[in-house]
């Protein structure tokens, strides 16, 4: 048992029900196209059996606690989707890394990078 584990109370970071927290933030935003696409990829890939919502959540919950504050909702989702697709053998880390580099080289905006 490591020092980090000795204070573990059986609750992981995502299990936040019942904890003390501040006011509920009421600002809302409409979803951007890229966020809707992430959501659509989750629905499509899970409906075709590449992974399940449990697989999505496993990767989300294994992220460091700071991810919840530092990354947006669909940023966490695309990271989890990519990891699940690698685990299922649909894509490899190497080809994903190469493609991200290519995409980033296409332009400075989402529209340019997506060829739209």
């Amino acid at each position: 048992m490591t020092d980090e584990n000795k204070d573990f109370d059986g609750r992981r970071w995502h299990d936040m029900g019942g904890l003390v927290a501040g006011d509920v933030p009421r600002a809302d935003h409409d979803f951007a196209l890229w966020e809707k696409r992430v959501d659509a990829l989750m629905i499509i890939c899970s409906s075709k059996g590449h992974f399940t919502v449990d697989g999505l959540r496993r990767v989300l919950e294994d992220m460091p606690p700071a991810s919840f504050e530092e990354m947006s909702y669909y940023e966490r989702w695309i990271m989890s989707i990519a990891q699940n697709l690698v685990e299922d053998g649909v894509i490899t880390n190497a080809e994903l890394g190469r493609r991200i580099t290519q995409v980033e080289g296409r332009g400075l905006t989402y529209g340019e990078a997506a060829h739209e």
């Binding site: 951007a32 980033e104 990078a113």
Partner: peptide, 29 residues
């Protein structure tokens, strides 16, 4: 304004584009 296509590209948006393109090329969707 809705956050849309004309904002600076982020790493995670690039990952979405990359994953989507690979899935289309591989015939998954």
């Amino acid at each position: 304004f809705r956050a849309d296509n004309d904002v600076p590209l982020t790493y995670w948006q690039a990952m979405e584009i990359a994953v989507r393109e690979l899935l289309i090329e591989k015939g998954v969707t």
